[in-house]
Design a protein around this nucleic acid. Sequence first.
DNA 1: TTTTAATATTGCAATATTACGATATCAATG
DNA 2: CATTGATATCGTAATATTGCAATATTAAAA
Lengths: 107, 107
Amino acid sequence: MGVTKTQMFTEEQNDLAQFFKVLGHPARVAILQYISKQNTCICNDLVEEIGLAQATISQHLKELKSIGLLKGEVEGKSMCYCINVERWSIIQNQLNTFFNTTKSNCC
Amino acid sequence: MGVTKTQMFTEEQNDLAQFFKVLGHPARVAILQYISKQNTCICNDLVEEIGLAQATISQHLKELKSIGLLKGEVEGKSMCYCINVERWSIIQNQLNTFFNTTKSNCC
DNA sequence: TTTTAATATTGCAATATTACGATATCAATG
DNA sequence: CATTGATATCGTAATATTGCAATATTAAAA
């Protein structure tokens, strides 16, 4: 049905999946990589750099913000989007915990 | 359009996003966690454990296999799905490299 | 060789995601 | 206050994903 049966899973499973899902689009990976290379980053740069429409980039930024990976500050007319380094580390740790605790001991 | 413009991105970006995407569903997270707890794992166990239909579980298993995270061996009438530990580590490393190299030096 | 049990595949229906044009908003500037 | 520039939001079209019933496949058991 295209509807994920969220209620069947634990909160941990849903959270993990949500992080993975947000990172699961090449445009969002590219946005993060680009922001990481710049000292200042405004959405308009991204539109030129990534090559998607402004509305589309804005939407992707919104999703990245939704899990706290980005924070944006208003700077005059434009926005300054930055990686939220603390959150970044927290999420990296959570994903690593998942990888480390999920180990095979199968046949 | 619901169509990701894959050709706009680097192979690295597409690969990374693909890994994240496959992990971005709670059922698939749950499947991996369950397999990791069991010594033997057949699809039928999962159907009972996860509570989705057999066809649905089978589909999720297929996606996990598509990025090499799972490998399945025929064992009589049933399948034994195992985590591919080598691949698992490789992917974990790739994701960590992404996290570590993508750092903020913003405003 | 028929039956049975386990898994895969097919074919939908429902919902979600992606992308973008058109607008709205909002702050600085004239 | 009107204009301009940057970003957000809305509406919508196209495509993707999720889930399942029905069916196919396949290997062991009868």
